Computed example of a mutant assay.
Amino acid sequence: MKLLTIVLVTFFAGMGAGLGTGFAGMSAAAVITPMLVTFLKMDPYMAVGIALSSDVLASAVSAYTYGKHKNLDIRNGLIMMISVLAFTVVGSYVSSLIPSATMGNFSVFMTFLLGVKFIVKPVMTTKEAMQGVDPKKRAIQSLVCGVLIGFICGFVGAGGGMMMLLILTSVLGYELKTAVGTSVFIMAFTAFTGAASHFAIGGMPDPLIFALCVIFTFIWARIAAVFANKAAPETLNRATGIVLVVLGVVVLTFSIFS
């Protein structure tokens, strides 16, 4: 019975996290962490470590898929990635000093609100318009935003992907597919750094739960990324919005009634 519970919880956690990653570059921790804590009674800090580990392969396969369809801006994402990586370690260390009970799910609200935004006000920026942004201005914004995103990603293991997507589309002027592709490219590295930091500080996780979360998240992220790259901008905005709203509501419900 316990094994069945573990398989079911990790399957649905991986499905939600994978869809969120493949469609919107969302951190897997926004879904996986509360589900592992609520249903498997896992320590929140360790749950974040498993979620970040699941993010690594899921983000990597998503980035590969977006890159294959030329929806990945590696050059302009490197500046943000370096600052995000540095402060992910800082955030992870600070979170280890704070009692687990205080680690909230504030990123859930961001997930829900961003989903509503995509439905109500879709991102229709074109790649041509994206190229018109001043390179120097974009570099400075990427550096500053990367510091903030990295700290939050390391601190709660969630919110980084959503903040990155919001910054890339609203501040840096990216079109949606390129924003998601660039976001998951960066998240693959930040998630690896965050996971390594968590396990180095808190020890290794349960191998079965760890493996199942990674595999299920990977599979669903691949499915979502393939669909997203073939979809029209209007369809992608709507699908991304719906996925984020549903995940936000579900995870918030888990948090309230756990």
Rank of each mutant, 00 (worst) to 15 (best):
F11C: 05
A51P: 15
G67W: 05
D206M: 01
D206S: 07
Q131V: 02
L165M: 15
I32D: 03
S258F: 02
P122M: 12
V147C: 05
S107F: 03
S107E: 10
G159N: 10
I50M: 05
I98F: 00
T5V: 03
I167Y: 04
K117R: 13
I149L: 04
G157A: 10
G241M: 09
I50D: 13
P34R: 02
L212V: 01
M130D: 13
T253M: 00
L72Y: 02
K2I: 09
M15K: 01
L165F: 12
L72A: 02
M204R: 07
T88E: 08
R138E: 11
L19P: 09
S142I: 00
L57Q: 09
F227C: 13
M130N: 10
F199Q: 04
S59E: 14
L4I: 14
V89Q: 04
S62I: 04
G159M: 01
A29G: 15
I215F: 08
S255D: 14
T33Q: 09
G22L: 04
M81R: 03
L165K: 09
M162I: 14
L72Q: 08
G241A: 08
I82F: 02
K2V: 07
V94H: 09
E175F: 03
T169K: 02
N76M: 01
M15E: 14
V48R: 06
V37R: 00
G115S: 12
A211Y: 08
L8V: 13
V90C: 03
F23S: 13
V84P: 00
V147D: 11
M187C: 06
T126F: 00
A58F: 03
V245W: 06
L8Y: 02
I209P: 12
V180F: 04
N76A: 04
V7Q: 03
Y174H: 10
F106P: 11
V123F: 04
V245T: 10
G194R: 12
M1F: 08
A47I: 02
S54Y: 05
V249D: 13
K127W: 02
